[in-house]
Design a binder for these strands. Structure first.
Length: 560
RNA sequence: UGACCAAUGGUGUAAUGGUAGCACUACAGUUUUUGGUACUGUCUGUCUAGGUUCGAAUCCUGGUUGGUCAACCA
């Protein structure tokens, strides 16, 4: 452990973005300042892919003693909503990050408009009356040049008049647009006179009805970065072809020019990451909502029982690079187990119960057994667990005709009831169909935990709850949402929905220890030998509801 | 038949001209009152063909493969 840490400190491993930043720092760029931003569009909930970006942007700023803004890219009023800005802020905070400034692209609409007039005056932008179809057609295709618009060479005065009329609301939606005059023959489609402003008579969640023209992403994003003094504008790979345009606007306007750096977005197998598809899962009720614990959204993971630390550690572990990647879901699961192992209090719960009767144990006797709350953290203390003649144990912890490597309960062999006694199984009761209805055993009184005889070597230890004292709880057992590693990979005429896992949710009634339960939603437990669970928000005083975050590793189940 | 980007074990990610390392996964073992945790070990890798060099995963050229770009979306 110590040596690992030392190695990391001696030789810090930089991702390619950090390497670039250190180079800039060495060169004295930006006066030694590092300023990043996280720029979501408020049109959906944040998912684990955004978490990667958030951890990257905030992490880098922290590492180089800089700052990070949150900026909502709200240039398209038809798609955006305050519901989303609220959830986004909540999720970023929950992940553990504080932004230096909270801004909106719409804060800059006035400045953007002024800059547009400036570009018109310099002959670098023009109003185009072409229809959407014409513009699209004349743009050409990547392999052959486009055709210049017939309106491309209007006079500055005419363009200015027209643009002001656009702003004044004298035109209908779609009647004309403002375009940058760049190069219709560029091999980069984004440089073929990109649209700067379109007419949208729509109500904006922040600017209300002040505007009926709205800037496009390419015209707004770089300048917003510039206004905020961002030094490194980190975005995903698909914006790589936009970079020449990002640079063009900053140069044409002679404003502070942040450096755009692109990295590969996160993909995880057995799930989907596109906002559109996540929205569809919610809208068409394939899941219960954005925070359904099976969703890869931040709020879904939170409800599932993931901790901010585990997600941050995941983001750190997957690294940052430019190549397309698909992360194995087992890495995410590893990260949450690693974290929960250290902090989750243990309790015993039986999910698939069968009655165990200790025939030689006194009727109506109850003993309080000492149990350790967290073996990884002695300061978590101990608790008392009631024990009696009749217990519930897991059906899978008994086998009548076991294979050689079965360590649990079987007739004639000894097994330890955790924190209690060693018992020896004697017989089973069965119904007419041959199903086991109860298991009988004898306990060895001198093997109670803590007594000398309890140190005896026993191959297996199983968990239990007292039938007379236990509580009932609903447990929701989640599995991966999709049945195949790459749900998006579907044949013509099929959709990703067909790859949904029909068994992604199983609901069971469990019997659980009565003591020490904190029933506040999101409280995390390890059900011993089963997995990590947390209290769901649906939980009430009458009815406990647990979500399974992730099962414990089970090398026994694997070997079968 | 364009431009841009990328290619390192099963999955990710380092090595910045000098011994291909780390994590996850898988498998094997030690410890264990959780078949968990912890610890130890094993398997598996530089897309390809040339070139530069004493030396190439790294630099150059060609090829191959994958990704992105033709919304008045971001």
């Amino acid at each position: 452990m110590e040596t690992k840490k030392e190695q990391l400190e001696e030789k810090p491993l930089l991702n390619f973005i950090e390497a670039k930043i250190e180079e800039d720092l060495k060169l004295g760029k930006n006066n030694g300042i590092v300023y990043t931003r996280f720029p979501p569009e408020p049109n959906g909930y944040l998912h684990i892919g955004h978490a990667k970006s958030i951890c990257l942007n905030f992490g880098i700023a922290k590492k180089y003693h800089g700052k990070t803004n949150i900026r909502f890219d709200d240039t398209n009023p038809v798609k955006e909503d305050v519901e989303y800005v609220d959830s986004i802020k909540e999720d970023v905070k929950w992940l553990g990050f504080d932004w230096a400034g909270e801004y909106y692209a719409s804060d800059y609409f006035d400045q953007l408009y002024l800059w547009a007039e400036q570009l018109i005056k310099e002959g670098k932008a023009y109003v185009d009356d072409s229809s959407q179809e014409e513009i699209s057609k004349n743009r050409g295709v990547p392999t052959s040049p486009g055709i210049e618009s017939p309106y491309r060479n209007r006079s500055v005065e005419e363009n200015l008049t027209l643009f002001r009329k656009m702003k004044a609301g004298e035109f209908a939606d779609g009647q004309c647009v403002l375009r940058a005059k760049i190069d219709m023959a560029s091999p980069n489609m984004h440089m073929r006179d990109p649209i700067m402003y379109r007419i949208l008579h729509a109500h904006h969640h922040r600017t209300g009805n002040k505007w009926c023209i709205y800037p496009m992403y390419d015209y707004a994003h770089g300048q917003s970065d510039s206004i905020e003094g961002i030094t490194h504008s980190i975005c995903t790979l698909e914006f790589e072809v936009h970079r020449p345009l990002y640079d063009w606007f900053c140069e044409a306007l002679h404003i502070h020019h942040p450096q755009q750096i692109e990295f590969a977005r996160l993909n995880i197998n057995y799930t989907v990451m596109s906002k559109r598809k996540l929205l569809q899962l919610v809208k068409e009720n394939y899941v219960s909502g954005w925070d359904d614990p099976r969703m890869p959204t931040i709020c879904g993971l939170r409800r599932r029982g993931y901790t901010p630390e585990s997600i941050r550690n995941f983001a750190e572990t997957i690294g940052v690079a430019k190549r397309e990647n698909v992360i194995d879901i087992s890495l995410l699961e590893f990260c949450v187990r690693e974290d929960l192992n250290k902090r989750a209090l243990r309790t015993m719960a039986v999910l698939d119960p069968v009655k165990l009767i200790i025939d030689n144990y006194p009727d109506n006797q109850t003993e309080m057994m000492d149990a350790v709350n967290n073996p990884e953290d002695i300061s978590a203390g101990t608790r008392k667990v009631p024990f009696g003649k009749e217990l519930w144990i897991e059906r899978a912890d008994f086998m009548e005709n076991p294979p050689k490597n079965f360590f649990r309960m079987t007739i004639g062999k000894e097994v330890r009831l955790k924190y209690a006694y060693i018992v020896q199984c004697t017989s089973v009761d069965k119904d007419e169909q041959g199903n086991i209805t109860a298991i009988h055993c004898q306990y060895l009184p001198e093997t109670k935990s803590g007594m000398a005889e309890s140190n005896r070597k026993v191959k297996g230890t199983i968990h239990w709850v007292s039938a007379a004292h236990c509580k009932e709880a609903e447990v929701r057992l989640f599995d991966r949402l999709f049945a195949v590693p790459d749900p998006d990979n579907v044949e013509e005429g099929h959709t990703f929905l067909e790859n949904l896992n029909p068994d992604s949710l199983k609901i069971q009634t469990a019997y659980i220890e009565p003591n020490f339960l904190d029933t506040k939603p999101l409280t995390k437990y390890q059900f011993e030998r089963i997995g990590y669970f947390c209290i769901d928000k649906d939980s009430t005083t009458d009815k406990l509801v647990f979500n399974r975050t992730v099962a414990l590793k089970d090398s026994w189940a694997k070997g079968k």
